[in-house]
Design a protein around this nucleic acid. Sequence first.
DNA 1: GTATAATCG
DNA 2: GGCGATTATAC
Length: 660
Amino acid sequence: MSSEDPLNASPNDAVKRSRYTHRQLHLLRQGSTATPLRAIAHIDLDAFYAQCEMVRLGLPRDTPLAVRQWESLIAVNYAARPFGITRMITAAEARKACPNIVLQHVATFREGEGGRWAYRDDSFKNIKTDKVSLDPYRAESRKILKTIKDELDRWCTNEPDGEAHCFTQGLSAGLEKASIDEVFIDLSPLVYSVLLQRYPELRPSLQDENRDAGLPPPPTTAVPWDPEDFLVELDLHEREEDDPDWDDMVMLVGAEIVRAVRRAVWDELKYTCSAGLARNKMLAKLGSACNKPDKQTVVRNRAVQHFLGGYKFTQIRMLGGKLGDQITSLFGTEQVSDLLSVPLEQLRTKLDDHTASWLYGIIRGDDRSEVNPRTQIKSMLSAKSFRPSINSVGQAEKWLRIFAADIYGRLVEDGVLENRRRPRVITLHHRTAQSRSRQIPIPASNAVDENLLFELAKTLMRQVITDGQAWPCSNLSLSVSSFEEGVSKNKAIEGFLLRGDQAKSLSHGSRPRDPNAAASEQLPPEKKRKTDDNGIKRFFAQPPHTDSPVVDEESAQPQPDPDPISAAQRSPPEVHGSAMPYYTCGRCSRSIAELESEEHDDWHFAKDLELQERQEARDVQHQSRPTNSSSSSRGTGTRGRGGRGGRGKPERGQMRLAFQ
DNA sequence: GTATAATCG
DNA sequence: GGCGATTATAC
C-alpha cells in the first residue's frame, strides 16, 4: 500500500497525479458527452411481462411462469428457464417440459365488448375475435419509472450537513425511457455532486487556473466495491492492485446510486431488475445483460477493451441487423477483436465514411450518444395479424373499431381529456403481399375521441382500398403520432423561452478571455437572476414522466421533453447551418454547440466558484460545522434539522436563500 | 409532411 | 412470430 494521505506534500506527488483533469471532471456536471468520467446506467427489468404477471397474481418468486400470446410465449420467468422453457417454444411444449408452469395469457380486447381489455381464461381460443392488450404492462412500467425517478430525486436533494449545498443545486439525472422495460440514466451530474461533497479536494478553487492540469489522486489505494457488484475483469495490461483513479471512484458512486434505485424498485413494487454501469450507453447496455437476474455489472474504463473484445459486434446496438450482416461478410468475421486490427482507412474502403468512423469508434468503446431526457411516448400503435387473411371492408372495420378504442384509452391515460397532449397525425398500415401505409392529419378543430379516430381510420381504409390490392389482408394497424402539447402548457413554455432568450444573450456575450465580462454577468441585479433560476427550476428541474399526478395549477404540470427543435432555435443561428452537433446542457437546459462547449463550461465553472464562495462566506458567518466529507448514503440525517424548525424540506429553502 | 425500412424489445 | 415503439431515409 502506498501513502495513506496523498494530500500531504511529498516528493512523489508529481508522479501520482490523476490522469484526469479538472476540465474533464467539471464536464460531468453538464451531462457533457465528451468526458471519460461519464457515468451512464442502463436498467433492465428481468423478464418484465412475466414479472408483471407474478406481481399481479401474487405468486412466489420460485413459481415457473410464462406469458402466453395465442400459442406462443412472449416472456419466461427465471424460475421456468431451468426447465428449458424459452420464448421460442409453444405453450403445449412448455406444458410438457414443465407440467406445473403457469401459462398466463395476456389481457385482450374482445369484439363487441367496448374498449375495455380484460384477462380472460379463454382468450387463447379466441384469436379470431380478441386483440392483445399490453396496457397492464404499460401501467406497471409507468409505476416503475416513477419509483426510479423519485429515488434519483432523493439523491439529487440529499445533502449532508454543512457547506456543500451548492453542489446539488438544480441537479437532476437524465432519464431516458428506452422501451417498456428499459431505462438509461445519466448519473454524471449526480455523481459529480457526490464526489465534490465527499472529496473536497475536487472542488473548484481559485488555484486551479490551469484546468487541464491533472486532478489530485483519489485518497485511497483500494476501492471499496460492494460485494454484490459484478466487476468486469480488467484489460490484460491492467492490474487490480494498481491505485484507482477518479474514473473508478465515479463508478463506485454510480454503483451505489444504481443499487439504491434497484432496491427502491424492489422495496416499493417488488420488481427485480438488472443494471449495467459504464461510461456510455453502449457499454452500460451490454453490461446490464451480463448478470441477470437481479444483479448489477460495472464496466470500468480499464476493463473496456477486455470487455468488448470478447463480443461479437453483432451484439452491439445497431449492428444486430442488416448492417451487422453486411459488415460480417465484408470482413469475414463477427468478432470485435478481429475488427480491432482493421485500420480506419480500410473500413472506409468498404463502408461509407460516417459508418466507418462510427464503427471504428464503437468497437473501441467510444459512444458519445446522449441520454435523451425523455419519458413520454411519441406514438401509439394498435395492430392485429390475420391468420388466415381477411377479405372484406366489413371485417377490417371491426378491427378498426377495436384499434380506435385501444388507442383512445391510451390517449386518455396520456391526458387528451385535460388537453395535455394530443396527436396530430393518424396512420393506417396495411399488409397484403407488400406493406402499405397512409396517413392524414387529425383535424385540430375536433376533440379527439374514439369515434373521430374510427372515422379517420375508415377514411384511410377507403384510400388504401382505392390505391390498389387491399385483399387478402394479413396485417392491419392504426397508429397516432406527432404529439403536441396542450395550450396551457405552451403558454407556460413560451414564457420560459422568453426568459431563456434573455439568459442566452447574456451567456453568449461572454468570451473566456474576457474575465470582466464574465464576472459582470455574474452580478446582474439579484432580482433578475432569481427569476431565471426559478424559470429553469420550474420547468426542467424534474425530468418528465408520464404518470405523475396531474396538479391543476398550471405551472405545476408535468413537463414535456425539452423539444430539440425549439431548443435548437434558442441557439445562435450559426450553430444550425448543417449537421453541427450540439447538446443540451444538463445544468441550464440550454442548447449548446459542441464548439462552444468549453466556453459554456467555463461560464458554469465561474458561476460555481461564485456560488461556493458565497456559501463559504455564509458558513463562516454561521459558525461552520465540521466539514467532514462523511459518507452521505440515503437517510443519514438529512431530514429537517431541529434548528430549522422541522419543515418538510428545509434544504430547498436553504438552497434558495443561498442565491438571494 | 408522407411513406417506407431498419432496428430493437 | 406477434405486437409495439423509435429512428433514419427518401421524396
